[in-house]
Nucleic acid binder design. Sequence first.
DNA 1: ATTATAAATGGAAATCATTTCCATTACGTG
DNA 2: CACGTAATGGAAATGATTTCCATTTATAAT
Lengths: 157, 157
Amino acid sequence: MPKGNCHGQGWWHGKFRGCGYRLTAGREAILDILSHEEGHLSADDIYIKIHPKYPSVGLTTVYRTLDVLSSLGMVYKLDFGDGRSRYEVAEGPKGAHHHHHLVCTRCNRIIDYTDFIDDEVELLNRTEKGLEKKYKFKITNHLIQFYGVCEECSGKA
Amino acid sequence: MPKGNCHGQGWWHGKFRGCGYRLTAGREAILDILSHEEGHLSADDIYIKIHPKYPSVGLTTVYRTLDVLSSLGMVYKLDFGDGRSRYEVAEGPKGAHHHHHLVCTRCNRIIDYTDFIDDEVELLNRTEKGLEKKYKFKITNHLIQFYGVCEECSGKA
DNA sequence: ATTATAAATGGAAATCATTTCCATTACGTG
DNA sequence: CACGTAATGGAAATGATTTCCATTTATAAT
Ligand SMILES: [Mn+2]
Ligand SMILES: [Mn+2]
Ligand SMILES: [Zn+2]
Ligand SMILES: [Zn+2]
């Protein structure tokens, strides 16, 4: 169990407790999948992955847990236009891994990118400050996605 | 009928024709609502607004038309997290009115903003160029939204 | 450890936006 | 005006998410 790994066991136990939520097997399982699996999973994806090991965790609970996690800011709920919500763990306490997305409108492939993030974040911070002042709007989050056609899809005429 | 107004009558007739689409009363009505009404309308919103004047236009046609418009790039399909898609006319030929959104996570209010757009667009162009090269990804569009709490919702403790 | 309490659960049923189907209508070329 | 085909509407299907409610379970108090 690596020292710096915040997703390993239970850094989030405290967060749950602190907010008055109880720790349950289902929640543990779901957070575990989210932190160890790559990609952008739908509720059903998660349900399927969990089911063999935890057959007692129902799809309803997956949805409910994702809501909780998302309201705690531990998970991002994303929409890539394929008709279902997809989820990914937010950065751990370290704040690392911040990234945005390229979305292929042909095949729905998603590419995470972190390039240019520094510039983007710098501008975002400036923009957010300005917007907060002008619109008296407390910004907590942002979403940036680029849409287009991926390399594979370009090939297919 | 103002001269510079591209949404007035039929600048899009040509676009439709050119792509092999037929002009129908329904399409005209829908595009008319979208270009003259403020805000971010859902398919159902549009259906309701159109119905009194064009009772013969069905909800299915509204969806179909929005798909076409959106595939032609004349309309943006947006998701603000309230469970339905919302639409707004893309900029006319003039290229004006480009804007992004602030989304209140409490009351779902949407604020259009154009401030800082210049800076943003400048960075976006740079970023897009870099991403296109690195990922061989042809970018056609981008989505930028800030989430947070609006002034009204802040008041309510 | 036992108990009490409210939170959490699963599974079936409900909801609701969007899509599919298909018989009918109507745009636009000639 | 007639024809071929795109477009339509309305009902039914779909599919993700939510709601309901009787049952289970985590946790704090005894
Ligand atoms: Mn990602
Ligand atoms: Mn807008
Ligand atoms: Zn693709
Ligand atoms: Zn608000």
